[in-house]
């Protein structure tokens, strides 16, 4: 490896980013970023819609948790590429074609386990005395979950959503393998065409997006979580 070649790829990537041609048409950076975010957001939202109610309910009742959490964890064990392979025939049989839908289907199992597990663990972890006090004062069971357990479990719930989102953003690149859009296009096409500046630009964009998602969650958490749950020293 000559050092000059390494320097070149940085220079080339920088040049790639400054080329106005990469900001027009259907392959424009902003278009790919939008596709990527759209796909990721939808995957996380659907996963949350499934995993949150189950995790919250199981956490509140403490029932069936063993089974549900283990089922969820199977999702963690399966390689994303394999999930994509499974998702293809499902999408085909539903007439959804290539690209977006099979990718979406393959991303959901990836997002389920952290959301469900964190919601469950968060709710279970709420101080039993606080719950007994709530029940003893006449809060209904849904009332306890909504106004006591969920706000107290919020930091963990949000961190589950964050982990899921970051994983999904990173993995959504695979969609390009099945003719999907998103930032994976640059990577897959860059590899196929041996255009390493494009490949590297795509990788950088995905990494940046993942970090931004992480930061955005951190900001949101700071606002959404009650000041009473921070350490006493810096509350208020």
């Amino acid at each position: 490896m000559d050092p000059g070649g390494r320097v070149n790829i940085f220079v080339d990537t920088f040049a790639w980013f400054t080329d106005p041609a990469h900001y027009t048409g259907s392959n424009a950076v902003q278009v790919r970023v939008f596709e990527h975010l759209e796909l990721s957001a939808l995957a996380v939202l659907i996963a949350a819609a499934i995993a949150l109610p189950i995790g919250l309910y199981l956490g509140h009742t403490g029932r069936l948790a063993f089974i549900a959490l283990n089922v969820a964890n199977v999702g963690r064990a399966l390689p994303s590429l394999a999930l994509l392979a499974f998702a293809l025939p499902i999408a085909f049989s539903l007439g959804l074609g290539l690209g977006f839908w099979p990718t979406l289907i393959s991303l959901i199992p990836l997002a389920l386990p952290p959301i469900m597990t964190n919601a469950y663990v968060g709710i279970r972890g709420v101080d039993r005395d606080v719950i007994e006090a709530a029940r003893g004062m006449g809060l209904s069971e849904p009332g306890i979950l909504r106004t006591v357990e969920a706000p107290l479990a919020l930091p963990l719930i949000l961190s589950g959503l964050r982990t899921a989102s970051v994983n999904v953003v990173a993995t959504a690149t695979l969609g390009a393998l099945v003719a999907g859009g998103g930032l994976g296009r640059y990577i897959v096409d860059g590899l196929a065409l041996q255009e390493y500046d494009r490949l590297f630009a795509g990788a950088l964009l995905v990494a940046t997006l993942a970090i931004l998602v992480e930061v955005a969650f951190g900001r949101f958490e700071a606002r959404a979580v009650s000041p009473g749950l921070r350490s006493p020293a810096d509350a208020l």
Binding site: D127, E132, A133, P151, L152
Partner: peptide, 29 residues
């Protein structure tokens, strides 16, 4: 649930809601 709203309940561990202010806690029932 209705019964408990008419009976005050205090436990040793107190069980105040950590995410609510003292005023909000007192206003629960």
């Amino acid at each position: 649930v209705q019964l408990r709203r008419r009976i005050g309940y205090v436990i040793q561990q107190v069980g105040l809601f950590p995410h609510q202010t003292i005023e909000e806690n007192v206003g629960t029932v």
